[in-house]
Write a protein that binds this DNA or RNA. Structure first.
Lengths: 103, 103
DNA sequence: GAATTATTGTAGTTAATTTACAATTAAGGA
DNA sequence: TCCTTAATTGTAAATTAACTACAATAATTC
């Protein structure tokens, strides 16, 4: 039942409100909205004017950006530096999902 | 960076609203609240009167219960049948969290 | 010190959830 | 069939937590 322990399909469906993302990451809601305006992160939104929801991948991204900002990088540089890492992460995630779907 | 791909500490912090749990599992919100009243599932609630949030473990539990209900088991029986499985899952999860914390 | 980047403040509004009442449906036994 | 218990559902009124859109403030760089 290893696929219960880490079910990437389910994990990717876990949507978290901006308030909880803020609690988990320590980034103020206002800043998260700003980063979204700047197209740095992406949220899922069912309705227009509805509530933002962030998924695992984007929350991971927020945490990585925060780490680099704390090290003194600018926002732009931080984002560039994690680009490749995020792309790898997304691919691995999809691969795992597909693998488990096949079962 | 395998710990980015599956970060159990982060996964366990992903809190999902009842509306989204309902969307993911196909169980109506009203029934989820009923199950919680019956102590079958547990939600995290920061404030009194605040919003329920469900974590990965409880969402997994909801999905497993649903599967057994679809097979024709009663609610009580379904819950009993997954008890051991849930206990194993929780333990594995904690172990993994601890392992990664040590790094 | 002007321009750009990064972040923040908040008023007024809307979305989503809460509780607490009760009603309904389903299943199994006397 | 009737009764009991289990399982689920309906909803009004209130509350929580989000939204947008305005603008203002810091910080950094040229």
């Amino acid at each position: 039942m290893i696929e219960d322990l880490f079910d990437p399909k389910l994990v990717s469906q876990l949507l978290v409100t901006i308030g909880d993302v803020s609690d988990v990451t320590g980034i103020p809601q206002r800043r998260l909205r700003y980063w979204e305006d700047k197209k740095i992160i992406t949220s899922a939104c069912t309705k227009e004017g509805g509530t933002r929801k962030f998924d695992y991948i984007n929350i991971k991204k927020i945490i990585l950006i925060k780490e680099l900002l704390d090290e003194g990088y600018t926002l732009e540089t931080a984002v560039k530096k994690i680009e490749e890492r995020m792309s790898t992460l997304k691919k691995s995630f999809s691969l795992l999902k597909d693998k488990i779907d096949q079962k």
